[in-house]
Write a protein that binds this DNA or RNA. Structure first.
Lengths: 214, 214
DNA sequence: CTATCATTCTAACGATATTTAGAATGATAG
DNA sequence: CTATCATTCTAAATATCGTTAGAATGATAG
């Protein structure tokens, strides 16, 4: 009777109970992706990725469309990205183990409050700072911070001269669990740039109600 | 390495993967409660409730304090209530099965948007409507809507004459999954009152950033 | 000391989840 | 037809989970 209601919500909970699935959700927060691409980025077999995606689809968190030989998966709703952001934020706040793990793996970047985020946008709009998006170009194309320039980590070394040395450069990537912006900042600093890392990703940005460009 | 991060978030996900635990979380959204009270309301043995609470505590979602013979559990953070509200809202939006189950069990009440909620508050403050909280008194005491009067479902029949027949009466309880406000409205209507149900609970209210009184 | 509230340990049962593997099947582009 | 991308079926190994039960243990009020 009443248990049915909680069981249904539990379906969503169960879908969120596997680390691999959470990783897939985070990747899908960036842009739609093929099974192949997801499996490669999440470092698992296509078969396993396919199985996890089936679970996520059964919980109605993701949807699929076919285009030619490829099946593209995407989040079923922007609310799913928001839920992922809330869940991760809660875990970061409550779980000491996560905090220490983050300190160890991820380079410490700037965690901004709502007001700071708006300040960052204003300064970027005025040209006082340069914001670069170091994710792959497809992810940039699917949505990026206003005023951000696409500069994928893989191309960064070759395109360094496009960046000014006299202005602060702010790099961001997929979010707090992603290492790309940290690597970008390390490279930039070594070459004499004034670089800082923004730990937000587009999903965090959007969850704050801030604008995202496509 | 990177998997550790997702594993930690998965701990929270796993805690949210059991219907019984979700029910306990919803109860704890109302007020702190003893194991005994939780077990009775969730219709399970004290032992099972204790085991589930242990899981929730391990995921740092709830905390306990002892007072005399009793151990009182409470949510570890208001963010936990917000997460429950988001999770439930997402499930309601995405899962057809939940929508049909809700239509069957719960009487259809008013689901309000942010602006409507403020209108409701204004009308209650002006005395145009009477808002009653039909939950047990302890839950009312722990936090209730501004301008709401405590009128527990168990006492409603005996205290009917405290309510005006010429003004609309709005009843709310623990939230969309709780049947108490529906029962209250059914009783009131039978006795000739102009009663409507508000499906929001205090957690939904607070998650909207609206004020809650204690 | 005793009654009450709560937790723990043990054990057991059944169910479900994660991962890997081999083989087969679909669906599509060229 | 063939190569590629994706899913499915089968199976197996391993692990964990949810629930119930009995018995014991703690912690506290009176």
């Amino acid at each position: 009777m009443r248990d049915t209601l909680y069981e249904q919500v539990g379906r969503i909970g169960k879908a969120l109970a596997s680390p691999k699935r959470l990783e897939l959700i985070e990747l899908l927060c960036q842009s739609e992706k093929t099974v192949d691409a997801l499996a490669e980025t999440a470092r698992c077999s296509v078969k396993l990725a396919s199985a996890h995606l089936k679970v996520l689809r059964a919980a109605r968190l993701v949807e699929a469309r076919r285009n030619g030989k490829y099946v593209y998966y995407r989040l079923a709703d922007a609310q799913v990205a928001d839920l992922w952001v809330s869940l991760r934020a809660l875990a970061e706040e409550r779980l000491l183990e996560l905090q220490t793990a983050l300190r160890e793996f991820a380079a410490p970047g700037q965690a901004l409050e709502g007001a700071d985020r708006r300040t960052l946008l204003r300064r970027a709009a005025r040209g006082e700072i340069v914001v670069i998006d170091v994710r792959p170009t497809e992810e940039y194309a699917a949505g990026h911070l206003p005023c951000a320039r696409s500069m994928p980590l893989a191309e960064l070394r070759a395109r360094l001269r496009e960046l000014p040395k006299n202005k602060p450069v702010v790099a961001y990537c997929r979010g707090p669990f992603c290492l790309m912006s940290g690597e970008a900042v390390a490279l930039l600093k070594k070459r004499g740039y004034r670089a800082t890392q923004l730990v937000d990703g587009v999903a965090e940005w959007r969850a704050q109600g801030l604008p995202v460009e496509t």
